[in-house]
Simulated scan of single mutants.
Amino acid sequence: MPDAPVDRPGPLQLFLIFARIGLTSFGGGLSGWMLREFVQRRRLMSEEDFLNGLAIAQALPGVNVTNMAIWIGFKLGGRNGAIASWLGIVVPAAVVIIGISAIFTALSAFPLTHVALSGAAAAAIGLSLSMGLTAARRVPRRVFPLAVMAATFVAVAFLHWPLLWTVLGAGSLSVAMAYRES
């Protein structure tokens, strides 16, 4: 039996969802929490839609997570949803960061503070790896996308070509090929 249709969240609910995500996660792990919240838990979008949005968010200038929040908010609630999502992911976390920075400054002389930050960094890396593996499982195993991926890696890692021009070139080529195939 198919799932019952899910009501789309309004701007206030989007603000609260993103505020919770922004306040309970950190670093690259935010996109993993967004995947769990909007795809797996609430079923408001498909995994394919989410990963397409993540690709767009990463290709645009700015902070990937903020771009993703705006994209999800717009997809689910239009302009007001995008604004509410952006405010939800940015404002509450910014207030907390200012408070934490004041506390960290006072506690930075204690070694336990640095141990706690190392643990938080390890958790963020684990969440980012989880998100990367989820995306990698969904990538079509075709020659052209793999060739573009390998060429981009070689261009940036070994040839030291500028990242901006490499991504713009490879990204444009990939988009053109995907458009041609659709």
Results as ranks from 00 to 15, higher is better:
residue 72 I to P: 01
residue 75 K to G: 09
residue 76 L to V: 08
residue 77 G to P: 03
residue 78 G to C: 04
residue 80 N to P: 11
residue 80 N to G: 15
residue 81 G to M: 07
residue 83 I to D: 07
residue 84 A to W: 05
residue 85 S to E: 07
residue 85 S to W: 01
residue 87 L to P: 00
residue 89 I to M: 11
residue 91 V to T: 15
residue 92 P to F: 06
residue 92 P to Q: 08
residue 95 V to I: 14
residue 96 V to P: 02
residue 96 V to N: 03
residue 98 I to N: 15
residue 100 I to N: 04
residue 101 S to G: 13
residue 102 A to G: 01
residue 103 I to C: 06
residue 103 I to A: 08
residue 104 F to S: 11
residue 105 T to R: 05
residue 107 L to C: 00
residue 108 S to C: 12
residue 112 L to V: 09
residue 114 H to P: 03
residue 115 V to S: 11
residue 116 A to P: 01
residue 118 S to Y: 03
residue 118 S to A: 13
residue 119 G to Y: 06
residue 119 G to V: 10
residue 120 A to G: 10
residue 121 A to V: 13
residue 123 A to C: 10
residue 124 A to K: 11
residue 125 I to V: 15
residue 125 I to G: 00
residue 125 I to F: 08
residue 126 G to D: 06
residue 131 M to H: 06
residue 131 M to R: 07
residue 131 M to A: 07
residue 132 G to V: 04
residue 133 L to T: 01
residue 134 T to H: 07
residue 134 T to K: 01
residue 137 R to M: 00
residue 138 R to L: 05
residue 139 V to Q: 09
residue 139 V to P: 01
residue 143 V to T: 15
residue 144 F to S: 14
residue 145 P to S: 01
residue 145 P to A: 09
residue 146 L to H: 03
residue 146 L to Y: 14
residue 146 L to N: 13
residue 147 A to Y: 00
residue 148 V to I: 13
residue 148 V to A: 03
residue 149 M to Q: 11
residue 151 A to V: 11
residue 151 A to G: 08
residue 151 A to Y: 07
residue 153 F to G: 07
residue 154 V to F: 04
residue 156 V to I: 14
residue 156 V to G: 04
residue 157 A to L: 08
residue 158 F to N: 09
residue 159 L to R: 13
residue 160 H to C: 08
residue 160 H to P: 05
residue 161 W to K: 07
residue 162 P to T: 12
residue 164 L to S: 13
residue 167 V to D: 14
residue 167 V to R: 04
residue 169 G to S: 06
residue 171 G to T: 08
residue 171 G to P: 01
residue 172 S to K: 03
residue 172 S to T: 15
residue 175 V to K: 08
residue 175 V to G: 01
